[in-house]
Design a protein around this nucleic acid. Structure first.
Length: 756
DNA sequence: TCTCCGTCGCTTTTT
DNA sequence: GCGACGGAGA
């Protein structure tokens, strides 16, 4: 296998051949084309929502490769998500009509990991270092805090993790954190704890996500030759979603672009919604300073949304002060529907209003997967889920627990880590007593103590201890067996396929058995996931590449594109688009979110507003904003005022309606909205079932019934008032998946069916 | 080692 | 109002 870092194979760029302009350039508008063809020197592309940002980036890369300006290995293209990277790769290859190898295209983290594996020794790591996730990170931080006698009640480990994370985002190693930044935490000892945490990571031969970039900066700072090598190599650098870059990423890019200065960053300050995790919109402003003479190209022609939607979104975002200024123009003349703004009675009313609108659209022939419900916070999805289950509307919630985050999957991976990396104490601690082997806290403390005094990893310490009488009978025996097993699996590793190895490990360790014996409802699902994990191993050549994949690809496998309504957070929707978008929960406290405002003041309010802007601009043809007069908050019904964003939507482009007069009846604090602005005569234009009747449609009468657990069994026949007879395919708590004889397969709540 | 009970906190999240 | 987590006690 060729070493991807070997630079000797990189041919110098062939002389500039004058190619005929390929067809893909012709379909661009002037601004887009300028952004593609300005290959020489730094370029900043300010690309509004729906203006073809990805298109510009992919075409630019294709153009660079096609015209012979650079060899694939001389280009660096960075994105934030694996999904974006994959898309970029596919689209560029599509434009070129051939596959491309050897280029540096991927997420910031994946690219940084690639560099770091090659120069790990410069930061005191081995090339085989483990990339730990936030879970391990938190456990490690807790350990450091315990070692410092800090009360984790008073000083939560999460807060320290966040503080350290922010420092890393800003490119600050412990020595660089200035004294006055120490802050309140642990009476100003945060920097010291940060230092200790880094020491522990090095001892474990591990790096957290923030380290990947941070260590790169250290590597570049320590070895000028290494830096120069990469600076020489990357003739062209392309950056996606630049507004999301943190300072560390900015510094990284700045270093790498120094020699050739052909860097092209594409971003939109109005879509910056990740400041809370370190993104610095200021990077956009810095760009001009850092690269004097940088060309700035604005993409302002929006190809996505119809006129009213775009105007409503633009009107809203003008309430933000800190903007670079950009005007979006609709690419087509069509004004389309106005943005509908609906007041509802409460969260349930909101959910049924949305589901009725969805069903109406469906009857008009609109596909469900072209509709999305975008919420501010995760808990909001529940009301929609319940309602959809009730009426049997297919939906999928995007986000939530990812495959590799599941408890059982993480345990299984910990076994593999413990055998691949004997120094990986975190993995060892995770599996040492799973399943229960009688190695409890006391035994583990002894092992830990020994490891500390000897300065060796836990596994090595355990091995030494079982030769002594330090540990009592049962624990000693169990530990010996585990260590022997790990040793044996380690040997098998050389002769066995990965998949086979994993099944043997999971089987012989008793881990599978543990879940088989577990009587809880989710045990079967967990066994299923373990099977899936083992199957997934077939795609990897070796354990190392699998573990790298696991740590860098945290996303869910793309759901099969069944026709389902999408439910997700506004954050999760960035970069996506749908024909119809529903935006519920536009209420003060919820959106803009109170906690967010408390923490970040005006800056945070503007970020919330950008989030609203992102939500609206996801819609191609239809956008509906909803707010409820009453909302169940922490188990209490509270009356809610409409979001200030509702009032900020420009009047000419919205159609305000209230679902029922009931809105006012329950809405005591109506000062925030002008009631006269509601219930205006509906605006002209397309009339269809889309336009809803103002009266409150009754919820279809379906009798619900409580069933004792165990009433239903897989395979048994049931009757549903709306869907008729069917057979149970699967049971997930009180959700049933049923193949109805007439209505197809649907997920419903058990309270809506009876045994047939 | 397990289980029970009180306390807390409760926005967004890729890698 | 609910779930996670940690401490206490059997």
């Amino acid at each position: 296998m060729s070493d991807p870092f070997d630079l000797s194979d990189v041919a110098p760029a062939p002389p500039l051949a004058p190619p005929a302009a390929p067809a893909y350039l012709d379909s661009l508008n002037d601004a887009q084309r300028a952004a593609v063809e300005a290959t020489d020197g730094p370029v900043l592309v300010l690309a509004g929502a729906g203006t073809g940002k990805t298109r510009v980036l992919t075409t630019r890369l294709a153009h660079i490769l096609d015209s012979g300006l650079a060899h694939p290995g001389e280009t660096l293209t960075v994105t934030f998500t694996n999904k974006a990277a994959r898309e970029m790769k596919e689209r560029v290859e599509g434009l070129l009509g051939r596959s491309v190898e050897g280029w540096f295209l991927g997420t910031f983290h994946a690219m940084a990991a690639r560099v770091l594996r090659r120069h790990a020794e410069l930061v005191g790591l081995e090339s085989s270092f483990t990339i730990i996730d936030t879970d391990d990170q938190l456990r490690l931080i807790k350990q450091v805090m315990v070692a410092n006698d800090l009360d984790d009640k008073k000083w939560p480990a999460r807060s320290l993790a966040a503080i350290i994370g922010r420092w890393k985002d800003r490119g600050l190693v412990p020595d660089k954190v200035s004294g006055d930044e120490a802050g309140e935490f642990a009476n100003g000892r945060a920097v010291e704890l940060y230092r200790q945490y880094q020491t522990r990571l090095a001892e474990l031969n591990a790096a957290d996500f923030g380290d990947l970039l941070l260590h790169n900066l250290t590597v570049f700072g320590r070895d000028a030759a290494v830096l120069a090598e990469y600076q020489q190599r990357f003739r062209y650098i392309l950056v996606d979603e630049y507004q999301d870059a943190n300072v560390a990423q900015y510094l990284w890019l700045r270093l790498l672009a120094q020699t050739h200065r052909n860097i092209c960053c594409v971003g939109d300050d109005d879509q910056s919604i990740y400041a809370w995790r370190g993104a610095e919109v200021g990077n956009i402003l810095r760009f001009e300073k850092e690269f004097p003479g940088a060309r700035i190209i604005r993409l302002e022609s929006n190809y996505r949304s119809t006129g009213h939607i775009l105007a409503a979104a633009s009107g809203l975002i003008t309430h933000n002060e800190g903007r670079l200024g950009k005007t979006l123009y609709p690419a087509s003349e069509a004004l389309g529907d106005k943005v509908r703004v609906l007041g509802t009675w409460d969260g349930n009313d909101e959910a049924s209003t949305v589901s009725e609108a969805i069903e109406a659209l469906q009857r008009d022939g609109h596909a469900l997967h072209e509709m999305a419900i975008l919420v501010r916070a995760g808990f909001q999805t529940r009301a929609f889920e319940e309602r959809f289950l009730q009426i049997g509307l297919p939906y999928r919630v995007i986000g939530g627990l990812r495959f590799y985050e599941r408890l059982e999957v993480r345990d299984a991976i910990a076994y593999l880590r413990a055998l691949a990396q004997p120094a990986d104490d975190l993995a060892f601690e995770r599996i040492v007593n799973k399943p229960k082997r009688g190695i409890g806290d006391a035994s583990l403390r002894t092992v830990n103590l020994h490891a500390r005094t000897r300065g060796i990893p836990l596994q090595a310490a355990a091995r030494e201890l079982i030769e002594t009488d330090e540990l009592r009978g049962r624990a000693r025996k169990a530990l010996a067996e585990l260590l022997n097993n790990l040793e044996r699996w380690r040997i098998s590793r050389t002769t066995m396929a990965l998949r086979e190895l994993a099944s043997i490990v999971l089987d012989e360790s008793g881990y599978i058995e543990m879940w088989r014996n577990d009587r809880s409802v989710d045990a079967p699902g967990r066994l299923e996931n373990l099977k899936e994990l083992v199957n997934a191993l077939d795609e990897f050549d070796n354990l190392e590449s699998f573990l790298e994949h696991v740590s860098l690809i945290m996303e869910n496998a793309e759901a099969v594109d069944n026709d389902m309504v999408n439910v997700m957070t506004l954050h999760g929707a960035k970069g996506l688009e749908f024909d119809s978008v529903f935006l519920p929960g536009w209420e003060e406290e919820l959106f803009p979110n109170r906690r967010s405002l408390e923490e970040g003041g005006v800056t945070a309010l503007e970020e919330e507003r950008r989030l609203a802007y992102v939500g609206l601009t996801r819609a191609r043809h239809r956008a509906v904003v909803l707010y409820a007069a009453n909302r169940l908050t922490y188990g209490q019904w509270l009356s809610a005022a409409p979001s200030r964003f509702v009032a900020e939507l420009p009047e000419d482009h919205v159609q305000r309606e209230s679902v029922s007069a009931a809105y006012y009846a329950g809405f005591g604090d109506a000062d925030a909205v002008d009631p006269t602005s509601f219930d205006r005569p509906s605006f002209g234009g397309r009339t269809s079932s889309w336009r809803r009747h103002t009266s409150h449609a009754p919820i279809p009468a379906i009798e619900t019934q409580d069933h004792a657990p165990g009433t239903f069994a897989q395979g048994s026949r049931v009757f549903h008032q709306k869907f008729g007879y069917g057979q149970i395919l699967a049971i997930d708590g009180n959700k049933l998946e049923i193949a109805f004889d007439k209505a197809g397969t649907k997920k419903v709540m058990d309270s809506f069916v009876n045994p047939a």
